[in-house]
Computed example of a mutant assay.
Amino acid sequence: MAKVVLLSGNTQRPSKSRALAAFIGRSLARHADVELLSLDLLDAGRSLGGAYTRDELSTEARAVVEAIENADAIVVTTPVYKGSYPGLFKHLIDFVDPRALAGKPVLLSATGGSQRHSLVVEHQLRPLFGFFSAQISAYAIFAVDDEFVNYVPVADKLRERIERATMLFGEAF
């Protein structure tokens, strides 16, 4: 059974990004034998932003970093703020050992208010995880606010994209 971390860059709950990650996880579970662990910036705690080195991380933040490093695969979902992922999300990723993600399957996804934000996946998330030499899925997911109702992805085309992406991603491990 593969351990898959559903990592979301949200800073509040409920969150469309966390909801998308959960929905992707459930879809993935239909295609692969996986154990899912949902984590977000709130799980790392407020002290994350005050840490300059890994030694300064709180117990909660260190647990999130170690879960990312020890996962067999990762689903990354982040909200888009002003054309980018949240700075605190990047700060968390900066604590991940670069060798820990080498060859690790990663599925990228993001949520945003409009399609104008969709390039964040290709222009920022893909290079970020490419730096780590992760095995990045060719198929990414971007969802806009109007594709959700009460934090549930309801748009048929979004559900189809998720199904296709998770079917392919499940073959990576």
Rank of each mutant, 00 (worst) to 15 (best):
K3S: 12
K16V: 06
S17M: 05
R26E: 15
A29G: 10
R30T: 14
D33R: 09
L37I: 14
D40E: 06
L42Y: 00
L42P: 01
D43H: 13
S47H: 04
L48K: 01
G49W: 11
Y52A: 11
Y52L: 12
T53V: 04
T53F: 02
D55F: 07
L57H: 03
T59R: 11
T59P: 06
E66Q: 13
I68K: 03
N70T: 15
N70I: 03
A73C: 10
A73Q: 03
V75D: 03
V80E: 07
S84D: 08
P86I: 06
K90C: 07
K90N: 04
H91F: 10
H91E: 07
F95A: 05
F95E: 07
V96A: 00
V96I: 14
D97M: 07
P98I: 11
V106Y: 01
V106L: 09
A110E: 02
T111V: 15
G112D: 10
S114H: 09
S118R: 10
V120L: 07
F129E: 00
F129G: 03
S133E: 15
I136L: 10
A138K: 13
Y139D: 15
E147L: 01
V149L: 15
N150T: 10
N150V: 10
V152Y: 01
P153N: 02
V154M: 13
K157H: 15
L158A: 04
I162L: 08
